[in-house]
Design a protein around this nucleic acid. Sequence first.
DNA 1: ACTCACCCCCCCAAATTTAGGGGGTCAGAG
DNA 2: CTCTGACCCCCTAAATTTGGGGGGGTGAGT
Lengths: 246, 246
Amino acid sequence: MGTPELTDEYDRFFDELSRMPDINSCIEAICSEFNIQFVTYHLAFHEGKAIDSPYVRTNYPAEWVSQYLTNDYVEIDPVAQNGFKRALPCLWSDLDWTAERSIEFKNDARKHGIGTSGYLIPVTDRKRRRAIVNFASPAKESAWAKKINTIDVLLLECAEILHRKAIVDLYGREDEKPALTPREIQCLNWVAQGKDASSIGLILGISEHTVRDYCKSAKHKLGCASLYQAIHIATMQRLIDPDSLD
Amino acid sequence: MGTPELTDEYDRFFDELSRMPDINSCIEAICSEFNIQFVTYHLAFHEGKAIDSPYVRTNYPAEWVSQYLTNDYVEIDPVAQNGFKRALPCLWSDLDWTAERSIEFKNDARKHGIGTSGYLIPVTDRKRRRAIVNFASPAKESAWAKKINTIDVLLLECAEILHRKAIVDLYGREDEKPALTPREIQCLNWVAQGKDASSIGLILGISEHTVRDYCKSAKHKLGCASLYQAIHIATMQRLIDPDSLD
DNA sequence: ACTCACCCCCCCAAATTTAGGGGGTCAGAG
DNA sequence: CTCTGACCCCCTAAATTTGGGGGGGTGAGT
């Protein structure tokens, strides 16, 4: 870990960053500040939009962006696949690249001028929205790892600024909507899997009454008229995720 | 409308098309067969995937694809916005391009070498998945309209072939899962909006018993243990769509 | 003429949800 | 130190849903 005091020195930079009008300018600034080649911000989804379209901001070359999209590389890219699941940042090299498809992907990336040195920062906010921020460089892996070791805290800060900007961009002025508690989310999650209150009580080791209470308060927080509607809303907001049950 | 017999003449071509290994080859073939500049297939969503990523296949230049993605043009592009709602094909020129953002978008498109003559074909399958297929040309609007008038039936066939290929590509061997009836979807839709059976009965002008029956059968068809789960699944499969209520 | 899929209506007993009402802890703010 | 808010827990009566069952009807395709 880099020293925490390092952040202070960069306060001015982060201030400027926060004031920039759009994410692309931030990306440029980050690249030149830290001498990084490519920076990508990728929000996994738009809440309940009818048309899927990920929110992506990057300075990757257009050919690569296009290639990535029209080949559904997001499905095989270990960085994306892991990034939206894991909680902690990591070097690209720490991921599993052994699958055949991953290797093909990596080669294609290299062909498009993307180096294999990179650093992945997953972001999860209070509303459980998930994004990944990637920093890429043509540097050698060992040099890159050393560099990251000294600036990881700074990049984390950058990632958070990017995310805040994206959220403002998408939903306007910051956040306000109520966040559900972990228990409430858990209960909704199990209800959406078809379990009834008493089973959920057993699973979570709490009383079925309590399970109902959580569903109730979740329903209220989401401003729903019925639990059905709450499940619908929660599903659209991706609060519900069969992968992370229990 | 073009003459229906026209389709017969093209049977061989459609046959070849169906046998092609991937959508990109189809797109090439269609372009050269009908002398069209760009063809795009765009499926709105992946069922319940954690990461939003539209299924797009196109021969647009990479710069334009990248520009479209990283500017969220799908949100302002009248072709996409209308295409995923309307049922019938139309010329791009028949859409409303008066909004300021639409004009900017159009100009940017032109800058990237996309002509303003185009033909939009929306596709909806039995499982309610929606896609749009676009044919673009640098031709003058009047000439293009005349041309479309003679080959519209053929392009419709092409659009369907492209969609079938996309579905196979995404979900493997064709379709099998049960499709819900319109009534079932309607009822689920209203339940997801927080209405109870008797209100829904009033809204749809049927008995509340019948509403319950539809919910029941929908639940069974979706293989769900509870109506909550059915709402969850239906939401993920985008069967539920507040825009198209009633 | 037949089946099949859809559409529509009803009943009932058992189970579940809903909408109230109680509690309690613990951390941080004033 | 009290207070507030967020979290956790439990109960009951009334209302609703569930999972069975029973009827109808149409129109399309074989």
